[in-house]
Structures are given as structure tokens and as C-alpha cells.
Design a protein around this nucleic acid. Structure first.
Lengths: 235, 235
DNA sequence: TGTATCGGATACGTTCCCGTATCCGATCGA
DNA sequence: TCGATCGGATACGGGAACGTATCCGATACA
């Protein structure tokens, strides 16, 4: 077995302190991976392209990862965690008395619809559907998102006099709407209409999955548009 | 230039009648492409894998296509057209007095959430975001879907006493919900909950994007309960 | 039935990328 | 300041997929 590989393997199992230098190299490879995967597509990317982009040779790569697959997963998880933290921070900064509209806007600002990340996520999803262990990773991430978002969203709705009967259903709906509308927004970069409709759809979903409850306010508000308000009377 | 390539190119420009044999070969390559791309991912797939799956050698491939990219596009368009036709047929078969619930169910049955196709579509979307001409193909397809679905959905809603103020917005929402929830359904094959919630979300969207109008019925309907509708409806 | 075109198979050379083994400068601890 | 370990660079050999040129059986048409 080669020296570098042997050391990397040993680091994997044993304690293996990590030098600052090594951490920087690893991080640069992760950053380069996102760029290259987004530009070329994961399947079309090569180890060499990632290394070149990061400013290293393949020796550095094989000293830090064993395969492109491993790098892909590591990069995806790192960015996921980062985005989830950004979302948490943004929601924590929302005023304590903010309504659903403000909360929604803060969340959408924290998680922008970004081209490179969307491409990578789309491919990762397809990839995960082929690989049971990756599937679990994705499911766990979706759960984490929902656990982060739901308490704050329901709290904001409650301040607005509305209760959420089925939080899990609302969580799934919000994630689905986010994913489904992202592609539409990105496919027509010059058209602002999809983005507006995306936000409208979010509002409709918040309405549909909540109902007037024993909150401080008696009457339903019309923070959405009149059509939504009218539709709400049904349930 | 090689003989085969020269002929293929000539066929592209000039009239170029197509033999039955050639059409069969082409079709088999298209079918093999879907399978291979779904299993391996587009980027990981090779010309040789597709040919082997189809039962040919690379000679046949290069006689019919110039690149994997071209095959990918051709396959995607062929399957898209096929699915759109299936959807049209299914919606045409819906009884003329059917309500939104029945119409929705017919549409969802005609366009099942299928693993292989979803993977391919996810990768195609990512690919299209890198390629302006492919982007237009996708946008055109989404438009075609909406033009097929919307008239029938709004008609069904109208029979239910509801009007749709903004059809384009409803169309975009329906497509987004379809795409966004498909991944959730497929990621947890053993869990029926995502599928149920998917259908519920569709109903909520139909509600939110329509309003009581000058229809035959005054009271709010229970579209969610086909039995009640049937009981009430006998014409 | 003969012949011309067509359609796919075969047979190259080439390029790219892989993964490993080894080497050397840098860094850290004594 | 001097070793020892660490981290990445360099240097290989190998294999896979590429695209093209050519060939030959099959099919159609006169």
C-alpha cells in the first residue's frame, strides 16, 4: 500500500490529528468540487479537473479522499450544513413578533435560489436514488430542515392567530414547493414571473396548512392575496 | 470523412428516406439509453454501454447519432412526447361531468412517479441549466404540459362551481408540486405517507388557485370526498 | 437475378484518466 | 538546531472509451 494512502487510512481509523495545512487543502478541494461539478456535471468531472481548480495535483486529492464519490458526499454535506446554519441564523434574527409574511421572507432570503447549488443538488438526488445509504442521508437532511423551519413557522403563524394541525404535512409541502419552483425560477433567468409565483405559492401553502385558531387575532388576515383569503374559508 | 458519418450527415441535410431497419435500430438505442442513463447516470454512461444494452456495436451508434448528448436529448424528447400523449389520452377519457377530484386522479395515474424517469429528468434539468438551447427545450415542454392540463383542470373546477383567476399561476404551481413531491415519494419507497401528502398538496393547490364563482353550485363543495360528490351529483 | 446502396461490424490508433509508488520540501517537537 | 513525521508533487504503468476508416452482409430495385 502506498504511503499516502496508508496514512490517510490510518487517520480514518485512529485518532489522527489534523494539521491546519491539511484542513485548508481539504476545504479548497471541497470548494473546487462544487464549482467543477456545477459546471461539468458530477459524472463528467474528473479528479484532475477538481485538483487543477483547487491548485493542487492528484497527490493531494488521494491523500484526502479515496474517490470522487466520497468528495461529492463530503462537499454536499458541508454545504448542506452551512446552508442550514444560515437559515437558522436568519430565522433567529427575525423579530419575536414577526408574522408569517416576514418569517417567510427571511427564510427565502437566507436560502437563495442559486444556480450552481441547484444543479449539484439535482444530480445528488438522482445519485441518491441509486444508492440506499445516500438516500438515508437525503432523508435525514430533509428531516433536519423541517425540524429547523417548522417550529419557527408555526410560531409565526400562531402569532397571526392560526394553528397548524399537521406540521409534518406542512413541512413536506414547504420543501416540495422549494425544490419544485427552484427549477422554474432558474430555467427562465430573465423572467421575474416564476419567482413571484414561487413566493405566492409559499403563501398559499402556509394558508392551506393552517387554520384560524385560538390566537390573539380573531379575524383571518389577508397577508396573502384576496384569492387565497377567499379559498381559506373552506376548510 | 468516414462513409457512415458522411451518409448520416447527408441524411441530416437532404431528404434521406429512413429504412424500417434503421428506425428500429434507432428506437432500440433510445430505449437502451433510458435504461443505462437511469442506472449509471448520464455523465457516467458511455457509448459502449448503451450499444451493448441495445445489442449493437458502436458502429451502429455513430451511424445514427453524433454524440451521447444528442442521444440524450432525442431520448428525453421522445419520452416526453409519449408521456404527454398518455396524459392527453387519460384526460380525454375522463367523463365530461367529472369534478376536479376525478380529473386529478386520472392525471396522476397517467403520469406515475417512476424512478428511472425521475432520475433522468433530474439530470436533464441540471444539464439544461448549463446549456441555453436545452433550457428552451425544457421551458417549451413545461408550456406544453400546462397547455394540455390547464383547460381540462379549469373545466373540471368550473363544473364544481369554481373559477380560476390566474391560469398560468395555477399551471406553474401544479408542475412545481409534481416535480417537488416526486423526489420525496421516491426517496422513501416503503413509506406511503409522502404519496398521500403529495395528493393532498395537489388538492390544496387546486383550492388555493380557484375561488367560488358564478357556477351552478352555491355552497362550498367537498371535492375531497368523491363519494359525497357522486351522491349529490346525479344528473 | 444482378447490382448498387445501405446499415451495422470490425479494426485500428489515440487520448485521457486512473490509482499507486516514491520522493522531497515543510513543519513541528525536542 | 536537528531529526521525524507529515503533506503534497512527481513519475510511472495500465486500462478504458473515444472517433474514424474500412469492410461486408443484407436489402431493395431494375
Amino acid at each position: 500500500m502506498s504511503g499516502a494512502t496508508a496514512r490517510a487510512a490510518a487517520r480514518g481509523t485512529a485518532a489522527g490529528r489534523t494539521t491546519a495545512r491539511r484542513a485548508r487543502t481539504r476545504q479548497r478541494l471541497l470548494d473546487a468540487a462544487l464549482q467543477v461539478f456545477a459546471e461539468e456535471g458530477f459524472g463528467r468531472s474528473t479528479v484532475e479537473q477538481v485538483c487543477e481548480r483547487a491548485g493542487y495535483t492528484r497527490g493531494a486529492f488521494y491523500s484526502n479522499f479515496t474517490s470522487l464519490d466520497e468528495l461529492f458526499l463530503a462537499m454536499w454535506e458541508e454545504r448542506s450544513v452551512r446552508m442550514l446554519n444560515a437559515l437558522r441564523a436568519a430565522l433567529a434574527a427575525v423579530p419575536a413578533d414577526a408574522g408569517p409574511e416576514e418569517t417567510l421572507r427571511a427564510a427565502l432570503t437566507a436560502i437563495p435560489v442559486e444556480d450552481a447549488w441547484f444543479r449539484v443538488t439535482a444530480e445528488f438526488t438522482a445519485h441518491a436514488l441509486r444508492n440506499p445509504s445516500l438516500r438515508h442521508v437525503m432523508v435525514a437532511r430533509e428531516r433536519a430542515i423541517q425540524e429547523t423551519v417548522l417550529p419557527l413557522v408555526t410560531a409565526a403563524l400562531r402569532r397571526d392567530g392560526r394553528v397548524v394541525p399537521d406540521e409534518a404535512a406542512l413541512g413536506q409541502a414547504l420543501v416540495a414547493v422549494h425544490d419544485g419552483t427552484s427549477a422554474q425560477v432558474l430555467l427562465e433567468p430573465g423572467n421575474e414571473e416564476p419567482r413571484r409565483r414561487r413566493e405566492a405559492l409559499f403563501r398559499h401553502v402556509l394558508d392551506s396548512y393552517s387554520a384560524p385558531g385560538p390566537g390573539r387575532r380573531a379575524a383571518p388576515t389577508d397577508r396573502a392575496d384576496p384569492a387565497a383569503r377567499a379559498a381559506r374559508t373552506e376548510r
